[in-house]
Write a protein that binds this DNA or RNA. Structure first.
Lengths: 205, 205
DNA sequence: CTGTGTGAAGCTTTTCACAGCG
DNA sequence: CGCTGTGAAAAGCTTCACACAG
């Protein structure tokens, strides 16, 4: 039933199910029940079944879910059964850390270019890649068919850079800047902000 | 109405309202309506008012919210009107980046100790701090009254370290490991996983 | 008039509970 | 039997709309 739109929270849980399933596969398991998946992912068995049922029937009654098969299906649903080219804007300390982050060096999300507005940084290297000036943003995005950008610039520059990215056709932004970006509705933004995360935890202390 | 328990999603939005309000304050504004706050935070005016109404009456009818006052109130609600001591476990590339992250160097969340299980790293320095062996975890947590930990270790070690942290009395964990941690219900965990975030965005492309 | 605070309505998400299949 | 898939019920969250205050 890909017909009716699926809640975003379901999409986010799919990634945790996938983590869980990969983990189980590594331990040599071949089949998992919704109860087992739920226990490791921290959700109820009914939730697991309902979430998966949005996309099809992947289990066998009386048995459970075949782990390899379910992984393949979730990867297809999330469209991560293919490589994705990313660009990174901002070559500060965070940008450097991201360039050397294992998942971006070897995984299916590949950073194909790094940009920075600071002329002193342009032409220096970070990891394997040369830092490019912002002027080349449009060119690279078009040439490499980039749809996803990681934003690792200061909060003061974030909105301006986001506007440029959107103008160049970027449709997904992963932002490390601690501000809410104003973007067209068809551009998806996710935020990573450790301080914001900590601020929501102190409430419970 | 602090009586009835407040949804977690409200707590998370409070941090975005705070960001918005600080931003407005910097631009010299003194008063903000729920419509303005909502526009910048990306939520409806009614949502802003309802969220705030969980904690008291902070606005003036016909006028709006006095920005400085509302900031103070939100900071009090989130308990971020005080300093918090954190520890960091894991002194790899990510750990180094976090130690040098501005907000942790100058802000109200202060990393007071760094731990690593690798004997080769112990006694070397990261930023200003000496890396301590895991054996000293319990001692430091007790001595410095630490309630919050940042987990920056490989996925394979994360659950084991989390268990140790919980045993030492840590009650909030910000985890960078791409697995769901199994913890007692009174221990709060937030996850930061750029790959998981990206995986949820490709679905919409 | 403008804009808050808030019950009530409307909508979404989660849980329940059970038919049905292996 | 065990466990999925799924309508129906319950719970939770968001929006509406309006009384009321400045």
């Amino acid at each position: 039933m890909t017909q009716t739109s699926v809640p975003d929270v379901v999409i986010r849980r799919l990634t945790t199910y996938l983590q869980t399933l990969k983990h189980m596969a590594q331990r040599g398991e071949h089949v998992a029940s919704s109860t087992e998946i739920g226990r490791w992912a921290g959700v109820s068995p009914a939730q697991v079944r309902k979430d998966l049922s949005h996309f099809g029937e992947f289990g066998r009654q009386g048995l459970g879910y075949e782990i390899g098969f379910l992984c393949t299906q979730i990867e297809r649903i999330l469209k991560i059964d293919q490589d994705w080219r990313l660009i990174l804007v901002g070559a500060g300390a965070l940008g450097h850390a991201l360039m050397n982050y294992g998942a971006f060096v070897t995984g299916r999300f590949q950073i194909v270019a790094v940009f920075d507005s600071d002329p002193a940084k342009v032409n220096t290297r970070v990891g394997q890649r040369e830092i490019l000036p912002m002027e080349r943003l449009a060119e690279i995005i078009a040439e490499r068919h980039v749809e996803i950008a990681i934003l690792a610039v200061p909060a003061t520059a974030a909105q301006h850079v986001a506007d440029q990215l959107v103008a160049c056709g970027v449709r997904s932004i992963l932002s490390y800047a601690p501000i809410t970006l104003n973007t067209p509705r068809d551009v998806h933004v996710r935020y990573i902000d450790p301080v914001a995360s900590l601020q929501t935890m102190t409430y419970y202390l």
